[in-house]
Design a protein around this nucleic acid. Structure first.
Lengths: 198, 198
DNA sequence: TGAATGACAGATATTGAAATCTGTCAGCGC
DNA sequence: GCGCTGACAGATTTCAATATCTGTCATTCA
């Protein structure tokens, strides 16, 4: 019954996150991670070829976790305009919660993500594909009229940069933020809409 | 005929820019500025109360210079949609030229501007007012239909953040950039447009 | 008299020696 | 054999002494 606790990449990632939380990004060392796991730091290098790859893996996990709820909305059914709005608001909320609940860890993960720019590109690509899916549904439903769903999706994603890109995390304090988001979403949805009769 | 060259704020700003160009932001000192002007550094402090205020003045000058051509477009006449598109493209181009022609000086001015965040706020406010002016004209012309020109202007400004905010200067290499700007502008103009008959 | 100077105190930046960390690997023990 | 250890070289970081800079002001000079 008393299983031998084996060293797995999963356990190492967990220990790394603890070390990051405890010491912060700058002072977190592989030696610290090994100490938490009660092994020598050489053992960690048996599972990750370098400190950089360890950090990348942490970043990737973080991005994947952020992706899940959005994926779900994109795959659900219903009127596309409402779904798109919900998707965008959810994305904005996810970032909002992350940055307000634990600003230090957010900053940490953020830097890790910037280092793993390849993973970030893939993450963004996935997000744009989700938006493209919703817009494409909207075209089929007759609610949207766009030449190319993927192009439109990227435009929508770009247009909301200010409210989901981490570079603008200091805007969270702005009291007019909710009203501005409302105005922006309305503008975008109107731009996607099929022309209406007066 | 041989005028005595007096020390003016203007001359000090010019000398400061030269020093910034020569040594870079981190190593530029007030002593260096004084040396360029061939005076003691104490004299510089007669015109600017601190190094910080000197740097602020440089940042302000930079922002004012960037503002001029946009102001002109905002004040011109003609169909609002074309004018808005021109204004937005000009703003994007200004940043593009600045960053490609002299990336080091751009980075320098950028940091100075971040320090002078009050001046940046004022600058942005001016820009949004210019967009609001154009949109307001568009409403009068019957081309646009929006509840509040200022609110819509802020939404347009926010939506184009990715293409004018310095935090996204590394996107300038992206080969799909022009196409994405086109798509975004089309989306925004469609969103502002008064509903058309089919 | 009013602009400029230059010596000065406290703050900030630089530097190089010492400490710590990363990544490797021969060898140990299960 | 397989996973782990711990000593090691080279790279990086830390820290304290040293140098430079910022901002002030009594003094000079025109």
């Amino acid at each position: 019954m008393n299983e031998v606790v084996v060293l797995t990449p999963e356990r190492i990632l967990e220990a790394t996150e603890e070390v990051l939380r405890r010491y912060g990004l700058a002072k977190a060392t592989v030696v610290d991670v090994a100490r938490v796991l009660d092994v020598s730091h050489g053992s960690v290098y048996r599972h990750f070829p370098s400190k950089a790859s360890l950090r990348q893996a942490v970043a990737k996990r973080w991005l994947d976790r952020a992706n899940a709820p959005l994926q779900e909305i994109a795959e659900s059914s219903g009127p596309a305009p409402a779904r798109l709005e919900k998707w965008l608001r959810t994305m904005v909320d996810i970032k909002y919660k992350k940055v307000t609940e634990d600003p230090e860890m957010f900053a940490t993960y953020l830097t890790l993500a910037q280092e793993a720019c390849q993973a970030v590109r893939a993450h963004k690509e996935r997000l744009v594909d989700q938006v493209a899916q919703i817009i494409s549904d909207g075209v089929k439903q007759g609610a949207f009229e766009v030449a190319d769903a993927k192009v439109a999706a990227r435009a929508v994603f770009d247009a909301t940069t200010r409210y989901h890109h981490p570079a603008h995390s200091d805007d969270w304090k702005d009291p007019t933020r909710p009203a501005r988001i409302d105005a922006l979403l309305e503008l975008l949805l109107r731009g996607l809409e099929a022309p209406r009769k007066r």
